[in-house]
Design a protein around this nucleic acid. Structure first.
Lengths: 164, 164
DNA sequence: TTGATTTGATTGAACTTTCAACTCTGGGTC
DNA sequence: GACCCAGAGTTGAAAGTTCAATCAAATCAA
């Protein structure tokens, strides 16, 4: 356990930590807002579509979606229900396991994803990737990988989230 | 405006961008969870207490809280109502402007913050700061500052969020 | 085979966030 | 002053998330 004395951050660390907080909040807010206004989906819904699009048959079990997004199963149930209502996803009962449900991306979902992906990637470049010195960007990648390395070994169940 | 051709990320950029997504999600989830389980407040509520604690009289106008957190006024109203019910904050009508309301941190709020700050800073070190190569961490800070620099100039109203 | 446990997913209620409408005060302008 | 319109904050309903309870199917143990 961590001791009783608090080791505060020094001013430089404080500044960098704050830069991270502010920057990532602004960035994520912006990417979400851009997707919503251009395509009517949230960043979270977009990411579900991305995950579906990366499987051979554009299909995932509910639990796989939940694990890969770090969302509760319940949350995925509700979200998929909404996306189904919007015509982006269709539910099918899983072959082999009658308890299972798989979410299948519809052609409408695919079409939306193609359009949304352009918006998203453009935003990621404009607001993040193309902005930074490439070496700094790679350093950021190392730092964030270290973060998840550590958290993954400490937390059973985090592994599924790492692999896209 | 961004053209019609999508400039995809190359594999290395993709990997670093994903590291950011995964790492920051895991990190923020973890910090939030630690605060909730140890002190019963969310990361958002903690940050409101921090902002209050940094003013001379531990007091802020509702709108200042809203701007500095990038939350809607409505959201702040609801959150402050809950925190008031929990005894962490007290409402006072603002001197000079009868429309205004100020949120004042109570002694209970201060006490909770002192305990929570230890948990929080320890978490930030353990899961982030102490994990990274210092030079990489500073590079990350530069990148994230660049992100908010850009977003702030592009978006009137984002300025308030930068200054803690 | 039966019963007990675990797993996959859903349900509905409680809680949080968002959104639009509303109240009240303050600042012009004529 | 009477008018209009910004600004500050609240309200209540809708949308989204979390939490605990539930149901059905699969797995395990005796």
């Amino acid at each position: 356990m961590s001791g009783t004395e608090t080791r505060w951050l020094d001013p430089a660390q404080q500044a960098d930590w704050r830069a991270f907080l502010v920057g990532s909040t602004l960035l994520m807010d912006t990417l979400d807002r851009e997707l919503r206004s251009a395509h009517g989906i949230s960043l979270g819904e977009y990411e579900i579509l991305v995950r579906l699009s990366e499987t051979p048959d554009r299909t995932l079990r509910m639990a796989q979606i939940a694990d890969s997004m770090r969302h509760s199963r319940s949350r995925v149930t509700h979200t998929v229900t909404r996306m189904e209502k919007a015509g982006l996803i269709r539910r099918e009962s899983a072959a082999g396991d009658k308890r299972g449900v798989e979410a299948v991306m519809t052609p409408e979902g695919w079409a939306l994803l193609e359009a949304a992906a352009h918006t998203h990637v453009t935003g990621v470049r404009e607001h993040f990737v193309d902005l930074a010195d490439p070496a700094d960007f790679q350093a950021m990648g190392r730092v964030m990988n270290a973060v998840s390395d550590r958290l993954v070994v400490e937390n059973p169940g985090f592994e599924d989230f790492r692999e896209l």
